[in-house]
Nucleic acid binder design. Structure first.
Lengths: 131, 131
DNA sequence: TTAATAAACAATTTTTCAGTTATATTAGCA
DNA sequence: TGCTAATATAACTGAAAAATTGTTTATTAA
């Protein structure tokens, strides 16, 4: 056999974080790592409104060409964006819009944290009035 | 004023990735970075079934003590877990179960990718039969 | 008070990775 | 065939951060 099958994880779709084998945890970590960079998030943002070619992405984000190319490769390899070549131009598109759902959830989580911090701050402030 | 207010991001809760200011993208990236480590995911896994103290976490994960301590500090600072001291022991607990929702979404995304890879593999394999 | 244990902290080493510069590849065109 | 533009790749540098080792603080119990 010339081509090897991708390692299939049984029932990955209905998953439960508490009993993940290390290999799956590694995959999840890898996925998060791709999203843990401001530049890559910027690129994803620029793609939210639709497919763009590399030059457009460079212009929107203001990042360097080689830099963008490297990030796009990473995003592409992790399956977050898809690559299509049309002549000299190469177009990239979000392959799984679930990304944005995930980001929105993170936002909510962050918002909750900020709110809690603000409340703690207020109660701390009212304490200060006694001194 | 002795205490500074945490920087408040307006309307972070109903957010839209396409028009995030760089500061917010940075916060999101930071959040993902915390989740982008197998060790930290392991720790979170060990906490899914309930509150644990540091020794228990060390035993479950098999990680080194100093290592776990550092990771817990990071998880705690990012608001993902909460710290409670009881005598000599220090207990940690998941403070925002949204984490697991997010991880599950990532799993679904990964599962989709794997499925696509498998289909590509199959079609590639059937092509091979011609040679 | 002392000994033992739990957890945090500090310092160090090693690895990883983002960004940059320079070079290569590829497609379209004169 | 050579030229130009779009994208990719390679090599390098500096900074961040992961893991390890050793040390320190704090709490319980003898």
């Amino acid at each position: 056999m010339l081509v090897k099958s991708p390692e299939t994880i049984t029932n990955l779709s209905d998953c439960n974080l508490s009993q993940f084998p290390p290999a799956v945890l590694g995959m999840i970590a890898e996925f998060f790592k791709v999203l843990s960079e401001t530049s890559r998030l910027q690129i994803l943002c620029s793609l939210k409104s639709g497919t763009k070619n590399v030059s457009e992405i460079i212009e929107i984000t203001g990042l360097g060409q080689a830099n963008v190319s490297k990030h796009l490769k990473m995003l592409s390899q992790s399956g977050i964006v898809e690559r299509t070549q049309q002549g000299v131009q190469v177009y990239y598109t979000i392959s799984n819009p679930l990304i944005f759902t995930i980001c929105d959830l993170v936002c909510n989580s962050l918002a909750t944290n900020l709110q809690q911090q603000e409340e703690q701050f207020k109660s701390l402030q009212s304490l200060q009035n006694y001194f």
